[in-house]
């Protein structure tokens, strides 16, 4: 207990030190306060941005796009991964395509996305989808392939139907690794949404940063960055919580004991 309290104090102290160093270097850098604002300036900007609801509006816009794209990727990617993991003919048909498209950065799709989907939410959602879909398909396929074959023998022994084998063996068996994959993927998606919003839309945290740069308000730019980091942390925390649900516990707990 005591040591965790000490850790906490130490962390806050080092954070405070960082703020002081920041303020000092901003003061004495010789740069204009619009180019390199200190923490106080940034905090003031944060107040301004939140008081008129701008910050909230942009955050919601970004979160909406990430949620939509990520959700699409989950709904399509995980079932495809399961099919590919279970049936080798499926793997043979789909895998080459996946492996070829996977290493292409989602940002390289920006021109096509804008051409196909125009201006607005759709191209951004499409880019998020791309950034999450391929990692999810691949990790789900791998997870299915590494299920202990004994479980499938149990399924055959107890006369499981094909559907029961999927729902009562495959899905619970891959849940822990899929949750880990979701956690990594949402981080990628969150990175991509900011980039996507710098191009095709008039809202979102990425747009806020770009717009503030054009207005030479670096304090607003930094506010945008801080909120991006903060929401990223929240998303990761939420995903980590997901790892503690009962369905995922059997593996971590099993490891600890055995």
């Amino acid at each position: 207990m005591r040591s965790s309290k000490n850790n906490w104090i130490l962390s806050s102290l080092s954070f405070l030190l960082l703020l002081i160093l920041w303020e000092l270097s901003a003061k004495f850098s010789g740069w204009n306060e619009h180019v390199f604002p200190g923490p106080l300036q940034v905090l003031k900007g944060m107040m301004e941005l939140s008081s008129d609801g701008t910050l909230f509006r942009h955050s919601v816009a970004s979160l909406y796009r990430v949620t939509a794209g990520f959700y699409l990727a989950v709904v399509l990617g995980i079932p495809l991964g399961i099919l590919m993991g279970r049936w080798s003919w499926m793997r043979m048909i789909v895998n080459p395509m996946i492996q070829f498209l996977r290493p292409i950065s989602p940002l390289a799709w920006i021109p096509l996305a804008m051409l196909w989907f125009g201006i607005g939410d759709k191209p951004a959602i499409f880019l998020i989808f791309l950034s999450s879909f391929f990692p999810l398909v691949v990790s789900t396929t791998v997870a299915v392939g590494s299920i202990n074959p004994v479980f499938f023998q149990v399924a055959r022994n107890f006369n499981f139907s094909r559907w029961e084998t999927i729902s009562r063996i495959v899905v619970p068996a891959i849940t822990p690794s899929v949750i880990t994959a979701l956690r990594i993927t949402i981080t990628i998606a969150w990175l991509v949404v900011v980039a996507a919003e710098m191009i095709a839309v008039q809202s979102g945290l990425g747009y806020l940063i770009l717009d503030s740069r054009n207005a030479l308000r670096m304090d607003y730019v930094m506010d945008g960055m801080i909120i991006i980091g903060f929401i990223g942390l929240l998303l990761d925390g939420f995903m980590r919580k997901l790892g503690h649900i009962e369905a995922a516990l059997w593996r971590t707990m099993g490891r600890r004991v055995g």
């Binding site: 004994v150 023998q153 149990v154 055959r156 107890f158 063996i169 068996a173």
Partner: peptide, 18 residues
């Protein structure tokens, strides 16, 4: 073919851990 008429008890645990 496998059938519930002859149940296998596995060398290492065959319980479904979830």
């Amino acid at each position: 073919r496998p059938s519930p008429d002859h149940i296998f008890v596995f060398q290492h645990s065959g319980l479904l851990p979830w």
